Computed example of a mutant assay.
Amino acid sequence: MTTIVPKKRINSIDALRGFALIGIMLLHCMERFDLTIIPEVASPFWQRVDTFVYEAMYFLFAGKSYAIFSFLFGLSFYMQMDSQAAKGNDFRARFVWRLVLLFLFGYINGLIYMGEFFIIYAVLGLFLVPLYKVPTKYLVVVMILLFLQIPAIVSFVTLLGNPTLNEPSYLNVYMNQLYATCAGIYAEGSFKDVLAFNVWNGEVAKWLWTINNYRYLQLLGLFIAGMLVGRMEIHKSEEKMVRYSRLMLPYSLAWFVVFYLIVWLLPALGVTGFALSVGTTLFKTFANLGMMMLYICGFTLLYYNHGWKKGLDRIAPVGRMSVTNYMAQSMVGVCLFYGFGANLAVQCNYLQSLCVGLLFCLVQILYSNWWIKRFYYGPMEWLWRTLTWMQRVPLVRK
């Protein structure tokens, strides 16, 4: 039986993935891992500070951190396919098996934390397999159509033209009922109650959120965007990464500013009710794509051109152990914020929740650096790789 040899990593990509994971953790702390209790602070000054913290974290990371993570998922898919093709292997069937394993990991993780997204990635990732051989010019068209979110545009225009329809759909109402139900369970129920809800209803709520917000379109578009960057071989050259980052930075900024202005103008233009909710979500999604690219371009330029490489390399192990760290965030976060655990969702305001998140991220950075010095992979990465190949995969560094 052969041994799978560990591959050389691209540290800037791992560091970018680590940055995205840190953003995801901080945002989840604001959401209290779906236990959305709004804190009240007695002091007017500290209430303003608390509100600012919440709004700042949402502005910085909501819709951006997961977008970066999704983009890198598509790039990683291409890198795996390309690496195996160079050896004369067709990796598509094994990638499907890899997604089956990710689905299982995601479902197990989802039993603890409803909001985890690995199971969504596993299902949507299946579309990458037939798309892998599609010519680039057609793939670009598919990506643009997905990013346009045409069903969301149709829904928004329909609601604007028919005020009598200006109310949530049945699926939105049902989703909101599930979220209202889970709030009580997560706040007051036992660990067993949380598991019992998440076995089915938690998954339904998560999928309804993904469908109702048309997030599945954006995610698949980001997967394809990552695959296209792989085809252009930008990731293989430091010079290319810097050049394209400089090129895209001003366009990304302009894109972000234009669509955030539209979001702010919607109420002034007389858009109200559910139409306002749909329109805000739609145009914020467009704006978030621009901010995501700002992060990617800015991060790349800082890493290669402005002397930040040594510092940013400290978060590369976090990204290298992304599956392990993401699942750890879910499990620890739930135990910290839910009623059966430390109950911080009730006891902490947003500023305190942010401090909890920052402390946990620091622990993950320190632990990931310690682990990667001694092992080739994180625990879950090693298990995933071993089950993918059904062969011996070395773990301990010699």
Score class of each variant (00 low, 15 high):
13 I>E: 07
15 A>D: 05
23 G>M: 12
24 I>E: 08
31 E>I: 13
34 D>E: 13
47 Q>Y: 13
60 L>E: 08
63 G>C: 07
71 F>N: 05
85 A>T: 06
87 K>V: 04
89 N>T: 12
90 D>K: 02
91 F>P: 12
92 R>I: 05
93 A>N: 12
96 V>Q: 04
103 F>C: 07
105 F>R: 04
105 F>I: 06
106 G>T: 11
107 Y>H: 09
111 L>E: 01
116 E>W: 09
117 F>W: 05
119 I>D: 05
120 I>E: 08
120 I>F: 04
121 Y>W: 06
130 P>Q: 02
131 L>K: 10
136 T>R: 15
136 T>N: 14
141 V>C: 04
143 M>F: 03
147 F>A: 05
151 P>R: 05
152 A>P: 03
153 I>C: 06
154 V>A: 00
154 V>D: 08
155 S>N: 14
155 S>R: 15
155 S>L: 15
156 F>N: 04
164 T>E: 15
168 P>F: 10
169 S>W: 15
179 Y>I: 12
181 T>G: 06
182 C>R: 12
189 G>S: 07
191 F>C: 13
197 F>S: 01
198 N>R: 11
202 G>C: 03
205 A>T: 07
205 A>S: 02
206 K>W: 06
208 L>T: 08
215 R>L: 13
217 L>W: 12
220 L>M: 14
222 L>C: 01
225 A>G: 14
234 I>Y: 10
238 E>N: 06
241 M>H: 13
241 M>V: 13
243 R>W: 12
249 L>H: 10
254 A>H: 09
256 F>L: 01
256 F>E: 00
261 L>T: 09
262 I>P: 09
263 V>N: 11
264 W>R: 10
268 A>M: 14
271 V>P: 11
274 F>K: 14
278 V>T: 13
279 G>S: 11
280 T>K: 09
280 T>S: 09
282 L>W: 09
288 N>P: 08
291 M>P: 06
292 M>L: 12
312 L>W: 02
319 G>P: 00
319 G>C: 06
320 R>N: 13
321 M>S: 01
324 T>L: 04
327 M>G: 10
330 S>G: 01
348 C>V: 14
349 N>L: 14
349 N>R: 15
351 L>K: 11
354 L>W: 11
354 L>I: 00
356 V>N: 08
359 L>D: 00
361 C>K: 01
364 Q>H: 12
365 I>W: 04
366 L>E: 07
369 N>L: 13
370 W>P: 03
371 W>P: 07
374 R>A: 02
374 R>M: 09
378 G>R: 10
381 E>A: 06
385 R>T: 10
393 V>E: 03
393 V>T: 08
